[in-house]
């Protein structure tokens, strides 16, 4: 399972980098989204995989052995929320850019006036 998830993280990063390097700006946004998800998966894998174990049990606080660590998931949730905010803003930005310049080509980004 660990190997599978590690490969998944790698694939996600690869897809993200590929998309980031495209000339189309909407693909750039997709790349950013993939990058965010790849990192969330990385956090999840790096935090240690446990399955079938509870995070908390009533009355058993303090006996951490045999429980899964809830913190990586809390971190991922926070990262997702932040990713949502940034993605939403980036989408608006690119949409405005498209409306102003009528193009989605990256070459329009360079200033050669």
């Amino acid at each position: 399972m660990l190997l599978l998830l590690a490969i998944l993280v790698g694939v996600l990063y690869g897809a993200a980098v590929y998309l980031l390097l495209r000339r189309n700006i909407f693909k750039l946004i997709l790349g950013l989204i993939f990058l965010g998800h790849a990192t969330n998966m990385l956090l999840f894998v790096a935090g240690g995989l446990t399955s079938g174990r509870p995070a908390f049990l009533r009355g058993l606080e303090g006996e951490a052995i045999g429980m899964s660590d809830p913190l990586p998931q809390a971190l991922i949730l926070t990262a997702i929320v932040i990713g949502l905010g940034v993605t939403a803003f980036a989408l608006t930005l690119v949409y405005r850019f498209y409306k102003v310049t009528k193009t989605v080509d990256f070459d329009e980004l360079s200033e050669n006036e």
């Binding site: 700006i25 750039l28 980036a90 930005l93 850019f97 102003v100 980004l109």
Partner: peptide
């Protein structure tokens, strides 16, 4: 908008 797309991407 040109400047901020670069800024957002690299900072993200």
């Amino acid at each position: 908008l040109r400047g901020s797309i670069k800024y957002v991407t690299i900072n993200f």
